[in-house]
Simulated assay, not measured.
Amino acid sequence: MGILINIAEAAGWCDNRYTERRALLDVSRIESMTGAGPRTGSEPPADCGQTRMVRKADAMIIAPASYNSINRLVAGVADNYALAVVAELVGVGLPTVVVPFVNAALARRAPYQTALRVLLSEGIRVLGPGDQWEPHEPGAGGRSHGRLPWQQAFDIATALTERTGDRHQ
C-alpha cells in the first residue's frame, strides 16, 4: 500500500484508506506518509448532532482484491466497514479500479467469472489479461504480491476521473 500512497502523493492526490485489516498494516508508517491513519470503522461515532467528516473521494482503487472481497462486493455483502464504504461509493458512481489478486484455480470458478461481469456492467474497471495482469498460480501468491500493478491502477483511476470530470483539489 505504501507504493500506491507514494504514487498518489507524487501526483498531488491525497488518499482515504479504508480497511478492516488494520493489524496487517504498518499504521505508523502510513500516518507518517499521509498525515492520517487508515479508517477502520472502529473510530468513535460522532457526537449527537455532529457528522464525521470524510474527504470527498475522486476515485477508488481496490487492491489487492481477493476472491472473497470481489464476490462479497458483487453479492452486496457489506458486513465490514471497508466493504460498506466500497459498496456505497460504487453505488454513487465513483470511478473505481479493481486489481484482483486471485489464484488461477479460483479465477476459473463460475462465481468469480460472474462477479467480474457484474463489476464491468456497473462501470468498474477491472484489471485483467488485457492489462498484462493475470491470476497467479495456486500457492504462488506470496511471490506475486510484489508485482501488483500500482502505477497502472493509479493511471487508470486518473484517466477515469479525468473522463468524468470529478477531480477535486
Rank of each mutant, 00 (worst) to 15 (best):
I30V: 13
I30M: 07
E43P: 13
D131I: 09
G2C: 15
S121D: 12
C48A: 11
M1F: 06
P44Y: 04
Q152L: 10
R108H: 13
R147M: 05
P38D: 09
T158E: 13
V74Q: 10
A84M: 07
A140V: 01
F154N: 00
P149K: 05
R39S: 15
P135M: 01
R143V: 00
C14Y: 12
G128M: 03
G12F: 06
I7C: 05
S42G: 07
L89D: 03
P100H: 01
W150C: 01
R52Q: 15
P100C: 00
V118M: 15
A46G: 10
D47T: 15
V102G: 04
R17T: 09
S42Y: 08
E20K: 09
M33Y: 09
A57W: 04
R21I: 07
V85H: 02
V86I: 14
M33P: 14
A10M: 08
H136Y: 08
T34M: 12
Q50T: 14
E20S: 14
A78D: 10
Q50H: 13
I5E: 15
V98K: 13
M1T: 05
A115M: 03
Q113Y: 12
G91Y: 08
G35Y: 12
T96L: 02
G93P: 05
L25G: 03
V54M: 13
Q113M: 02
P38T: 09
R143P: 00
A107T: 04
T96M: 05
V118G: 15
Q152S: 13
R109T: 12
V97W: 03
S144R: 01
P138S: 06
Q169S: 08
A104K: 07
T34E: 04
I7L: 09
V85R: 14
L119F: 06
V85S: 03
G165I: 08
C14I: 09
L160I: 10
A153V: 00
L94G: 08
W150M: 02
R21W: 11
A10V: 03
P38C: 08
Q152G: 06
E162M: 09
R147V: 02
G49A: 12
S121V: 14
T19L: 00
I62D: 07
V74G: 00
A75R: 10
W133T: 00
P111R: 02
W133H: 14
R21H: 12
P100I: 02
P64C: 03
R55D: 10
G76M: 15
A59T: 05
A153D: 01
V85L: 12
A10H: 06
E134W: 04
H145Q: 08
E43S: 11
G93L: 04
R167N: 06
A84I: 11
Q169N: 10
A11C: 01
I70D: 13
R72N: 14
